[in-house]
Write a protein that binds this DNA or RNA. Sequence first.
DNA 1: TTGAAAGCGCTAACAA
DNA 2: TTGTTAGCGCTTTCAA
Lengths: 334, 334
Amino acid sequence: MSTIKEVAAVANVSVATVSRVLNNKGYVNEETRKKVLLAIEKLNYVPNEVARSLFKKQSKTIALIVPDIKNPFFPEVARAIEDVMSSQEYTLILCNSDGNVEKEIMYLDVMKQKYVDGIIIVTSTLTPKHIESRDIPIVALDRPISSDLPSVSVNNYEGAKQAVQYLKTIGCKKIAHIRGPHAISNADERYKGYLEEVGHEPWFHPDLVVDGNYHVEQTTEAATRLLLINPDIDGIFAGNDYMAVGVLKAARKLGIRVPDDLSLIGFDGIQLSQLTSPEITTMAQPIYELGSTAAELLLKLIEGKTVERFDYQFEVSLMKGQSTRALGVIPFGK
Amino acid sequence: MSTIKEVAAVANVSVATVSRVLNNKGYVNEETRKKVLLAIEKLNYVPNEVARSLFKKQSKTIALIVPDIKNPFFPEVARAIEDVMSSQEYTLILCNSDGNVEKEIMYLDVMKQKYVDGIIIVTSTLTPKHIESRDIPIVALDRPISSDLPSVSVNNYEGAKQAVQYLKTIGCKKIAHIRGPHAISNADERYKGYLEEVGHEPWFHPDLVVDGNYHVEQTTEAATRLLLINPDIDGIFAGNDYMAVGVLKAARKLGIRVPDDLSLIGFDGIQLSQLTSPEITTMAQPIYELGSTAAELLLKLIEGKTVERFDYQFEVSLMKGQSTRALGVIPFGK
DNA sequence: TTGAAAGCGCTAACAA
DNA sequence: TTGTTAGCGCTTTCAA
């Protein structure tokens, strides 16, 4: 790999001149520019980004910290983020925290050491203190950290209400909820939305809410128990699509037909929801847009531009699959 | 962020001494070391990795180039790679190439510019020439580039044969194959394995092989047509689990019962194969091990260690799900 | 055992 | 319009 010095030597100019043509900055004679370009071509020269970073104190690199890239929600946002980043010549570092504070902090510090220009993080455990003390642009994704920190998420509460309303609309008379982890804000919001819609129904009972913990296996077990104890449940709102899959498995095992006997609605709109049979009706987040918005917001923060908004909250939309009864269709045998 | 200079000033020593204690290199008096450590503590100092990189010509960073992180196979390897990398204090850059040569080359060059220490790549289009001219440690994952370039993959041919043999074992009399893209080596190998097993059967016909192109929708359509034209097909070997999902959707649409009427086997063993109902029987790759092996191999290459092996080829193993008939069970109505 | 100083490859004052 | 030079923060020779 050749250096700017070598280019300068070949072109018979100073390194400053080479730097000028490289960055299109400052005056440089057209003749000279050509000479330099020729030398660059000849030596197959590309500037050393590390040296540039050292001087400029920025690396054209950002980090994405997620709990686990294997969770199918995250590859979708990661792809969106990488798309906008690479279009701006930025590079994306991927980190898996397992939702573990120590790992999150470790990554934060390592990234800072590497002069990473900014960070997008999905966390339920980090506090504003952790962030502010590190003074590096950060945007929270999926789960806001605090109201005065940049974040991109969806209206989980409203979305959950709409999900349950839809189940009511199609005629469900007893609706259960498989909820996500108590420590995660979006799971709480969705739970609250559910409660708001059904808490005052005569049939409502707290036992209709069970923990799925965002896991398929745990959900399958929990849903199996739930459906065994309450055979009259005819609607389930799963806290996310991943858990909805678990419900589907439980139903199949028990011989309960979806949607004939049981209507199921999920949340997220990840690709997986469209891969099951039946396809899962879900409250879809604009996942790609979440990622790209977070990326663009971070970019603005990095470039010191004033941002008009700090917290973006998108709405979710009903995506009808085959896991819910069609409107007005009376199920067999009822 | 404080610098080594400031630490030196506070500790009242030279920067060289600070560097020595930082790196545990060269002689340094126990007293002096303590002074320095104290200063470091006091200033909350962490060394600047970029400056280090510039000097050492290495960045403790590697890149992973995959076609698309949204393809559920890749998050699983990415996680494995990141696990071993982060345990060695390396950082992982993620790139999506969409299987596009131009993008692959672009990323290769950008990574080189960033002093990335090595690259793990999943590609069907890059040639040895592209790699060698860039002289940077590279290991090919999932798809070997050439026999003399480091690679980690599985025995696709053998795996495919075993898949088809299993379908025969459980009594399938007419077995079709949904194959992956023609340009991808592993899809070809799996196709060859299938052919080897059934090419000479009296019932075999080239039309039993259709293109799924590693896409769910395309597979659903192709499988629908296939099953409509050949209602006597009782076994399908899908080129990967992703496409097997498509077959499942087609079967459901047509009212064909899996596994009662049709036995289905996939390839890969991604998590998705266990999320469908029925769960898909598949030839499972040791995905995590593939990733971690690639990572370890790359690390050795980076550190200039001699490697005993350049091409790792793992075996796949049958993972029984519910998409294939149980051995010896005669299906209803036959 | 320690420090001075050169240098990694680049950018940007400043001077010419 | 161009060149000289200091400096980004670090490591490592070399000399003391």
